[in-house]
C-alpha cells in the first residue's frame, strides 16, 4: 500500500460515515476494514486521506461506491461443496416436513450461493414451497444478485463445485450463455426475495427454519458477532438451523448453549439441545 492509513484516520472515517449516513462500521474487525479502505484509496486514486474524507463528506452519491468497496463481495456457486452436501443430506429432510420453508441468506453479496441453494431446493422438490430472503448491506451487489448474470468463465468451476456438492443434473441446464456471460434460469429466482439489510443495525424481520450467513462474521469484532448471533437466534424457529462459513463458529457466542453442531466437519448448527 502506498498510502499509510493510521488507526486514528480510520476512526475519523468511521465516525463520518456513521453520522452522515447511518452506516456503522465501528464494530467491524479492524485489520480487514483497514485493508479495504487502504485498497479503496489506491483503486480510486486518492492522493491523501483528507481527499477521501472530503469525498465522503461532500458527495453523497459516492456512498454506494464506498459500501461496495468496503464490503467483501467475493463468493462463488456451491462454495465449499461439502457444506452443500451436508445441507442436502442432513437439513433438507427436516425442511421437507414444513408446509412453508423460510430461509434467510444474510450477507448474500452477489447471490451466487443463493442460486446454489435454489438449485438444490429445486432438485429436492422443495423450491415451490420455499421462500429465500436474500439480504446484504451492499445495494450494488444485490443488483448483481437480482440480475443473476455472471461471467461465463466461472461456470466451469461452478459446474465442478456443483458436482462435488452432489448435483446430479446437467449444470449447464441452469443458465443460458450469452456472449461471455451466463444468465441464471429465471425460474430459480421466483422464490427469492432480495432486500438490503444491515446486520450491524437492522433488526429481525421474520422467523426462519434455516439461516445461512457465510464468511460475513469474520469481518466483525466479538461485540458485533454477538449482536448478530442474538439477531439470528431471535429470527430462528425452535429446531431451526444456522449455516456458517468454514472458519466461523457459534461456539464462543453467548447463544452457544442453545445450539449443537450437527456435523463434525461442516459449520451447521441446530437450535435446541442434542
Amino acid at each position: 500500500m502506498q498510502l499509510e492509513l493510521t488507526e486514528e484516520q480510520l476512526d475519523t472515517l468511521i465516525g463520518d460515515v456513521q453520522s452522515l449516513y447511518g452506516y456503522d462500521f465501528g464494530d467491524y474487525a479492524r485489520a480487514s476494514l483497514h485493508r479495504r479502505i487502504a485498497r479503496l484509496m489506491t483503486v480510486d486514486r486518492f492522493v491523501s486521506f483528507a481527499e477521501l474524507r472530503y469525498k465522503i463528506n461532500s458527495d453523497k452519491d459516492y456512498l454506494a461506491r464506498f459500501i461496495d468497496m468496503v464490503s467483501v463481495n467475493v463468493t462463488e456457486m456451491f462454495r465449499d461443496p461439502a457444506f452443500y452436501r451436508a445441507l442436502r443430506s442432513q437439513v433438507f429432510p427436516v425442511l421437507a416436513t414444513y408446509p412453508l420453508i423460510r430461509i434467510w441468506h444474510a450477507g448474500c453479496a452477489s447471490g451466487e450461493e443463493v442460486y446454489s441453494m435454489a438449485i438444490m431446493l429445486k432438485e429436492s422438490k422443495l423450491l415451490d414451497r420455499s421462500i429465500i430472503y436474500a439480504t446484504d448491506i451492499n445495494p450494488t451487489a444485490l443488483g448483481v444478485a437480482r440480475a443473476g448474470i455472471y461471467p461465463l468463465s466461472q461456470m466451469q468451476k461452478y459446474s465442478e463445485n456443483y458436482m462435488a456438492a452432489g448435483g446430479s443434473e446437467e449444470f449447464s441446464g441452469y443458465y443460458t450463455a450469452q456472449y461471455d456471460m451466463a444468465k441464471i434460469d429465471g425460474a430459480l429466482s421466483k422464490r427469492i426475495v432480495y432486500s438490503t439489510h444491515n446486520l450491524a443495525t437492522d433488526s429481525s424481520f421474520n422467523e426462519f427454519q434455516l439461516i445461512i450467513c457465510r464468511n460475513v462474521l469474520i469481518y466483525f469484532n466479538q461485540v458485533l458477532q454477538d449482536r448478530v448471533f442474538r439477531l439470528f437466534d431471535d429470527s430462528l424457529e425452535g429446531l431451526g438451523f444456522i449455516g456458517l462459513g468454514s472458519k466461523e463458529s457459534l461456539r464462543f457466542s453467548t447463544v452457544a448453549e442453545s445450539y449443537h453442531q450437527i456435523n463434525a466437519k461442516e459449520k451447521i448448527w441446530r437450535k435446541g439441545r442434542k
Binding site: 474487525a29 479492524r30 485489520a31 480487514s32 485493508r35 479495504r36 467483501v72 467475493v74 464468511n215 469474520i218 469481518y219 462459513g245 472458519k247
Partner: peptide, 8 residues
C-alpha cells in the same frame, strides 16, 4: 490476534 479475510 488472528483475523481471516476471504477478499480478492
Amino acid at each position: 490476534s488472528f483475523a481471516l479475510d476471504s477478499s480478492e
